[in-house]
Design a protein around this nucleic acid. Structure first.
Lengths: 238, 238
DNA sequence: CGTCCCGTTGACGGCGCTCAAAACAGGTGG
DNA sequence: CCACCTGTTTTGAGCGCCGTCAACGGGACG
């Protein structure tokens, strides 16, 4: 059997269609014809808020940020997406409610909403995966709501730093920080300067070390306590 | 054919199962056995954050608020749910990430996650409806993120007031306001006093009239402009 | 070396939170 | 009907957090 056009193991479409035995090659080939693949380089705009939304994308590789821009004021990041997640399926035949920008080189599989609906009707396994993705994203969104609504600047930054840690990793090792100060600010609903100040204060107090492009936790306990006021959940979709 | 145990037309389960011709009475009866129905009176807690989450509920009638409570600090409302929406399907076999409280007398249909997964595998129509619900809720959550992250207090309250208007209604007529000042504050990420002050200021400036338990728009243009900084979307799931 | 972008730091002002008390509504019993 | 109590709403005073504005330092690049 030919493998899927988009070879990502985590792809909700390909994974669900090819991992179980209930679908034959005919169906697989049919689906392949519906998919197209695109690449974007870091910083490139994948689609812009307000433009027509007719395609669902599956993020194959890389990282996307979803932002929204008020008529006047600063951008707000709605969320970050990593490989395996869906984007552009929120509204049918309506404008995109946000702008998607590539943070890293990005690789996506595209399918039109119309075709996707047909696939969903024929393949419960795909539908289940899609539901799972939406559940995850909704939980992430609720965590952001909670943090934006309740937490002061220190707690937001602390939560953000903790969200960068790969789960189960040793707390003492450093992990990369791809976002700029401005992007962190947009994610946390703060100003660039406030983010910078909090990072500086954390460093002064021996909570973290933050050399160029990465972060290292020095005092995980205190960071967690600061993030606290809750359960210290992640800020992004990782 | 017997009608569904939960008779709500908007019920994602019943509606999808009984409106199209492709399901026979056997399947219908089987599903009926999986559903149980519960009622809650206004103010009652439906389930509490952190407790085991094994059931999906479909809101049949009434209004629910979803709140989260940090270890220290004030509550934050994550969202409001109206008839037809799902609740309690975000996490499988994990604790509820929020508390659900009835704002009005509430009527729900319940089904265990285990049974629901079986239904979803067998019924693509149900799966499509569930996906639709999650899409809607995700869009609502993103609107809240945007508002909490960007907008100042005036704009939040203005957006909230506009969200109360039934769509297509005459702007000049009054509409009911079921939430207390405290609950509005929790929804908007503000303090009770600030909400009260903004309402008072709006009244002084002739923007709204707010007699006991209802609101009337006097100057829709200015309220919309205040809510502005964007597209003035709704705050809740109506 | 000059330019640009990003991060940092400082000064300052305002928005909104906190604390506190008064005004108000609604229910209950006399 | 009034007195009383309780919970909600309103209003005021004070201040702290954080956003704004501005200046400065450093690395990348031409």
């Amino acid at each position: 059997m030919l493998s899927c056009h988009c070879k990502n193991e985590d792809c909700v479409l390909c994974g669900a269609l090819f991992s179980d035995g209930e679908h034959d090659a005919t169906q697989a080939c049919e689906l392949r014809g519906l998919l197209s693949r695109r690449r974007y380089s870091a910083g490139e705009t994948v689609f812009r808020e307000g433009t027509a939304c007719i395609q669902l994308m599956v993020l194959r590789a890389g990282q996307l940020k979803l932002t929204t821009m008020p008529l006047v004021g600063r951008e707000q990041i709605l969320g970050l997406l990593v490989a395996g997640q869906l984007v552009g399926f929120e509204t049918s035949e309506a404008p995109y409610p946000y702008t998607a920008t590539a943070l890293t080189p990005v690789d996506v599989c595209c399918i039109t909403h119309k075709d996707m609906l047909r696939v969903l009707e024929d393949n419960p396994a795909v539908a289940l995966r899609v539901i799972q993705r939406f559940r995850d994203e909704l939980v992430q969104a609720q965590i952001m709501i909670r943090n934006l609504g309740i937490k002061p600047a220190h707690a937001r930054v602390a939560s953000f730093i903790l969200s960068l840690m790969p789960i189960g990793s040793d707390h003492s090792e450093a992990f990369p920080l791809v976002l700029s100060r401005l992007e962190i600010a947009e994610l946390l609903g703060l100003s660039e300067e406030t983010v910078s100040r909090v990072f500086a204060e954390f460093r002064r107090n021996g909570l973290i070390d933050a050399p160029h492009g990465e972060v290292r936790l020095l005092d995980a306990r205190r960071v967690k306590r600061l993030a606290g006021m809750g359960t210290g959940e992640a800020w992004d979709g990782t």
